[in-house]
Amino acid sequence: MPDVESQGTRDGARSNARVATSSAQPATAATMSGVEQLKTKEFWRAVGGEFVAMLLFVLLGVASTIDWASAPSDSKSIANCPTQSDRKVLISLCFGFSIATLAQCFGHISGGHINPAVTLAMVMTRKVTIIKGVFYLLAQLVGAVAGAGIVRLATPPDFRENLGVTGLGKDVSGELGLLVELLLTFQLVFTIFASCDPKRTDLGGSTALAIGLSVSIGHFAGIPYTGASMNPARSFGPSVIATNFKDHWVYWVGPFLGAIIATLLYEFIFCPSSGKPSPGRVIPKEQIGAFKDGMAPVKRKKRTERKDPPPTREVVSTV
């Protein structure tokens, strides 16, 4: 253990000793669950951010599902409304762009989960404490109900019948719907982990946009089957307002299972090693031999003389 007296004044030494002592002690149950976070403003700001983000997400997404073409024949609102074939594209892009925008806005506040399945994945990987995960879930559910309620208040009575409630498609059983929601949520959570991995060195562009596109492609593929929820809170809010819980279990079990499987696969199988460069990373030629079997790069002695021209740069093989 280093001599603390040589590192500064006595006050600094005492401070260092206290830090070393506290870090050596095992974590208590309160520390592990995050109960002490309840006393901080940052905690409640993050919980409030999840509430507002989910409210806006459900409001915007559910509003895009309103079928204005179902108006009575004498209604003026039927003019210029999207056709049935266009509604799938409209809904998919609205949900995808909404989640990308809100993730960009609230990412620095709460992490921009906006999905109980994502929160579960973050709790599993200890990126979020248990207590924060519970409060995030409650904020997301209340925000979803509030967002769906606002849509109902702003929508004329003739168009309130469905109100964005997710349901199984024609001849789609509950088991098949469960499988579809599992797969759709799997690709979403896997995209989130891969896009936000701090160990990757090849990332570029917008992480929020990548996640938004993942939500959009999930809707493109899944709307005819299950309505493409991928989000228990997104299904919960409209179901509460419309008092329609038919096959509602599918939209909890499917996304949660998909999130769990994606988390386990990425964290324990596909997660790149911290010491090995990601495929596609550009590194100097002289350092290519320093990476072996996922180990950290070997330190090499600095060259005192350089007789050759500067080394060229190569791209590490993706194979």
Rank of each mutant, 00 (worst) to 15 (best):
P2V: 15
V4E: 06
G8N: 04
A17Y: 07
V19S: 09
T21R: 10
T21W: 02
S22E: 13
A27G: 00
A27K: 13
A27N: 04
A27T: 09
T28E: 05
T31A: 15
M32S: 10
G34Y: 05
L38E: 01
K39Q: 11
K41T: 14
F43D: 01
R45A: 12
G48T: 11
F51H: 09
F51K: 11
V52W: 06
L55Y: 14
F57M: 13
V58E: 08
G61L: 10
V62H: 02
T65I: 09
I66V: 15
A69I: 04
A71P: 03
D74M: 07
D74V: 04
S77M: 13
A79W: 06
A79Y: 10
C81P: 00
D86L: 14
D86H: 13
K88M: 14
I91W: 12
S92V: 03
C94Q: 11
F97E: 02
F97T: 08
S98N: 14
F106L: 08
F106Y: 15
G107K: 09
H113P: 02
H113F: 10
P116M: 09
A117F: 11
A117S: 15
V118A: 09
T119E: 08
T119I: 11
L120Y: 07
M122P: 00
K127S: 14
T129R: 12
F135D: 03
L141C: 15
G143C: 08
G143A: 10
A146Q: 00
A148L: 10
I150A: 14
L153V: 15
P156Y: 07
F159P: 03
R160P: 01
E161M: 06
N162L: 13
N162C: 02
G169E: 09
V172D: 06
V172P: 04
G174A: 05
G177M: 08
V180Q: 04
L184C: 03
T185W: 06
Q187N: 12
I192T: 03
I192P: 08
A194N: 13
A194T: 12
R200M: 14
L203E: 01
G204M: 05
G205F: 10
A210F: 01
H219W: 05
A221W: 05
A233H: 05
F245V: 01
K246Q: 12
K246I: 06
D247R: 00
D247T: 05
H248G: 10
W249S: 01
W249G: 03
W249I: 05
V250R: 02
G254N: 04
P255L: 05
P255W: 06
L257Y: 04
G258N: 07
G258E: 07
G258R: 06
I260Y: 03
I260W: 05
L265N: 01
Y266H: 05
E267T: 13
I269E: 00
F270A: 15
C271G: 00
S274H: 13
G275E: 09
S278M: 04
V282H: 06
I283K: 03
I283D: 07
I283T: 12
P284S: 11
E286H: 14
E286C: 08
A290Q: 15
F291M: 05
D293E: 15
A296L: 13
R300E: 14
R303P: 00
R303H: 08
T304Q: 10
K307A: 10
P309C: 02
P310G: 06
R313L: 11
V316F: 13
V316S: 02
V316I: 15
T318R: 10
